[in-house]
């Protein structure tokens, strides 16, 4: 069953998830194009940064 066409690493999956979700959040939650881009980048950075921070937290908890 492990014959998926696309098998990304965990980090790649996080980045792709963050990219798509941030694009939708940016467009739907703000009114002007400038604010949309700023909010989209803000969400993207928050998604990826929180994933990295939580990963390190779990790494230390597991030890």
């Amino acid at each position: 069953m492990g014959n998926a066409i696309f098998q990304p690493s965990h980090f790649t999956a996080v980045v792709l998830f963050a990219l798509f979700a941030s694009t939708v959040f940016g467009i739907t939650q703000r009114e002007t194009p400038r604010d949309m881009i700023r909010y989209g980048i803000y969400c993207f950075v928050l998604f990826v940064a929180s994933a990295i921070a939580l990963s390190w937290l779990m790494y230390f908890i597991a030890r």
């Binding site: 066409i5 696309f6 098998q7 998830f17 694009t23």
Partner: peptide
């Protein structure tokens, strides 16, 4: 177009990941 690309992209990648 951006919404369609994001949502379709996410759905397709989900299927490609089985």
């Amino acid at each position: 177009a951006l919404l369609a690309a994001s949502i379709l992209g996410m759905f397709m990648l989900g299927l490609l990941m089985q």
